[in-house]
Write a protein that binds this DNA or RNA. Structure first.
Length: 487
RNA sequence: GGCGUCAUCGUCUAAUGGUUAGGACAUCAGGUUUUCAUCCUGGUAAUCGGGGUUCGAUUCCCCGUGGCGCUACCA
C-alpha cells in the first residue's frame, strides 16, 4: 500500500512553528517512504475563520521548502488551488459528504440526536465537578426513540448529533511514538459530531476525510491523543480500516510552557521576518524531537528526507531554544555564497531604506559572515558602509594607552601611505600595509585600531582591510581624512 | 477532580543490564587577533526521588514527585 500523510491545519492565522514541525515530520515520513504528502484545510469552525489564513499556511510551508503532492496548494498568482482526485480538500466544501456519513451512523444506531441546551450541559458539568466525578455528557438523549427525535428535528428544534461511545471495554491506540495507549470506553465522552449550525466537528471530519482521502499515517500533535479513541470507534462504526497514528510531543519555551504569542515569536512568518533562513529553520526544527544518532547535525532537507526515521522520534516535549537556532542560522549563512547571501538580504535592505543597486553588495554582506546571526542583523550591521558621515566620538579613535596626537599622526601617515598604493585589493592592501607598519616599528594596534574606527565609526566592526577594500580607495582616504579632522 | 502522557548536563540530544555516561548549543578559561565575531585548545555541568528484579540498573518493574496535554456544539 502506498503511504500517504497529510498536514491539516485550521486556517486561523499564521503557521505556528509547532505546526511546521508536524508538517515537516509528515512530509519527511512520506518522502522517505516514497509516499504522498497531502494538505487539507480544516475550517469547520466558522467563528475562527481568518481571512487569508489558508494562503498563510501554504506560503509558510513552501517557504520552508516542503512541496505538496496533493490537496490544497498555491497557484502561480498566489491563489489557492486544489489538486488530486479525492477532493475537495477544504472541509467547508465537503458538508454534504459529512451529512451523508452521519446519517448512516444515526440509522445504524451509532449516533443520536441530542436536544440538550447549553444551560443543561453546564449544569450537569457543574454537578459533576462538585461531586468530583469525571466530567462528560450524561447521556440524557442517548436512548431517545429515533422516530420521536426525528419528529422533533422536523419541527425545527435545535439539535446536535452525538456519537454513541461503547459503555464497556477499552480502546487501544497503537501509536508510532508512544506505543500502545489504553483508554476505558466508559470514560470517553459521547462526542458531538454535528454542531447546531450543521457543521461537523473536527472528530467527524478528520475520520471521514482521512478515510476517503486514503491517508495511511495520521501524524499530528500530542493534544489529539486523548480523543483518538473516539476516532478509532468511529472507524469501527463505519467498518473502515484504521490508519497508523503518530502523536508528536509539543514544542515548549524555556519556562516549559506552551510556545505562545504572549512570550515572543511563534509563527513561521515571525522567523522569516527576523531573517532566519528556511534551511536553518528546517534543520533546527527537525532536530527538536528527532535525531538520526550520529554526531553530524547539519542536514539539508534532501538529507533529512533520506535519513528520517519514525522510530527515532522521541517522546518528551522539546524546548525551542533560540540560541541554538541562531547558531544554525549563522552556520547556514556562512555556507552561502556571497552573491546568494546578498540576494537573501535584499528585502531587509529595503526595509531599512538602503540603496540596493550597489554592485558590491555581495562583498559588503560578506563582511558580516560569521558575525551576524540573522539576515536582518546583517542589513543593520552594514549600514555604516553606506553612510556619508559617520557619527562617533573622537576618543574612540584612540587605541588603548595611545593618545589623540599619536592617533592623529598615525592616520596622517597612513593616508599618505595609502595614496601610494596602486593595486587596491584586499590581499595587496593588507600585505603592504602590514609590512609598512613593521618597517616603521609601530604596533599593529597603533595604526589598525584608529584606521578601523575611522572607516567604521564603531567600537566593534569587521576588520580594517575588509572594510577598506569594500569601501574603495577614495572613500577610505576620505574617511581617514574626516577622522583626522575630528581629532 | 478524572483520564492520558513524559522524565539523561541550563538547552537539544547519544549510549548501554557492566562506559572515565558521548556530542552540539550556551557558559567559563586559554590561544589566535587592531575590536567584536570567526577559528583552535581546554574546563564546569546530567541519568527526578524511593523501593524492588539482578552479581550488577541510568537502562527492566512498581510507587511517589514534578511537568505537560485532554476533560467545548475549538481545532
Amino acid at each position: 500500500m502506498n503511504i500517504k500523510t497529510r498536514f491539516a491545519p485550521s486556517p486561523t492565522g499564521f503557521l505556528h512553528v509547532g505546526g511546521l514541525r508536524t508538517a515537516l515530520y509528515s512530509y519527511l515520513f512520506a518522502r522517505k517512504n516514497n509516499g504522498v504528502f497531502m494538505m487539507r484545510i480544516e475550517d469547520t469552525d466558522q467563528e475562527r475563520f481568518v481571512e487569508g489564513g489558508t494562503e498563510n499556511m501554504i506560503r509558510s510551508l513552501k517557504w520552508a521548502g516542503l512541496s505538496i503532492d496533493e490537496g490544497v496548494d498555491m497557484g502561480e498568482e498566489g491563489n489557492v488551488i486544489q489538486k488530486g482526485d479525492k477532493g475537495p480538500y477544504i472541509q467547508s466544501q465537503r458538508l454534504d459528504i459529512y451529512k451523508k456519513y452521519v446519517q448512516e451512523l444515526v440509522e445504524q444506531g451509532h449516533a443520536y440526536y441530542c436536544f440538550c441546551s447549553k444551560e443543561r450541559l453546564e449544569e450537569v458539568r457543574k454537578n459533576q465537578e462538585l461531586n468530583k466525578m469525571p466530567t462528560g455528557y450524561d447521556g440524557h438523549c442517548r436512548d431517545l426513540d429515533v422516530a420521536e427525535a426525528q419528529k422533533r428535528v422536523m419541527t425545527g428544534e435545535k439539535y446536535v448529533i452525538r456519537m454513541k461511545m461503547p459503555k464497556t471495554g477499552t480502546t487501544v491506540v497503537d501509536d508510532m511514538v508512544r506505543g500502545k495507549v489504553e483508554f476505558k470506553n466508559e470514560l470517553v465522552d459521547d462526542q458531538v459530531l454535528v454542531k447546531a449550525d450543521g457543521f461537523p466537528t473536527y472528530h467527524l471530519a478528520v475520520v471521514v476525510d482521512d478515510h476517503l482521502m486514503e491517508v495511511t499515517h495520521v501524524i499530528r500533535g500530542e493534544e489529539w491523543l486523548p480523543s483518538t479513541p473516539k476516532h478509532i470507534q468511529l472507524y469501527k462504526m463505519f467498518g473502515w480500516d484504521l490508519p497508523q497514528f503518530g502523536h508528536l510531543s509539543m514544542l515548549i519555551n524555556e519556562q516549559k510552557q506552551k510556545l505562545s504569542k504572549r512570550h515572543g515569536d511563534v509563527s513561521v512568518e515571525d522567523f522569516k521576518q527576523k531573517g532566519y533562513l528556511p534551511e536553518a529553520m528546517v534543520n533546527f526544527i527537525a532536530f527538536l524531537g528527532w535525531n538520526p544518532g550520529g554526531e553530524k547535525e547539519i542536514f539539508s532537507l534532501a538529507e533529512l528526507e533520506k535519513e528520517f526515521d519514525f522510530s527515532k522520534v522521541h517522546k518528551p516535549a522539546a524546548v525551542f531554544n533560540r540560541e541554538k537556532l541562531n547558531w544554525y542560522n549563522k552556520q547556514y549563512m556562512m555556507a552561502l555564497s556571497d552573491e546568494e547571501l546578498a540576494k537573501r538580504c535584499e528585502s531587509f535592505f529595503i526595509q531599512i531604506g538602503l540603496q540596493t543597486s550597489d554592485f558590491r553588495l555581495a562583498n559588503i554582506v560578506a563582511l558580516e559572515k560569521g558575525r551576524s546571526s540573522t539576515l536582518a542583523e546583517i542589513a543593520e550591521n552594514i549600514t555604516f558602509i553606506f553612510s556619508d558621515k559617520l557619527k562617533y566620538e573622537s576618543e574612540l579613535l584612540v587605541w588603548k594607552k595611545s593618545t589623540h596626537e599619536d592617533a592623529k599622526q598615525k592616520l596622517k601617515e597612513l593616508a599618505l601611505f595609502f595614496a601610494t598604493i596602486g593595486d587596491w585589493n584586499r590581499e595587496n592592501v593588507e600585505q603592504v600595509t602590514l609590512s609598512w607598519i613593521k618597517e616603521k616599528g609601530w604596533g599593529n594596534g597603533d595604526v589598525l585600531w584608529p584606521m578601523r574606527v575611522a572607516l567604521s565609526g564603531q567600537k566593534n566592526s569587521p576588520g580594517p582591510f575588509e572594510i577598506a577594500t569594500v569601501l574603495g580607495k577614495e572613500k577610505t582616504l576620505d574617511r581617514i581624512q574626516k577622522a583626522i579632522e575630528l581629532l
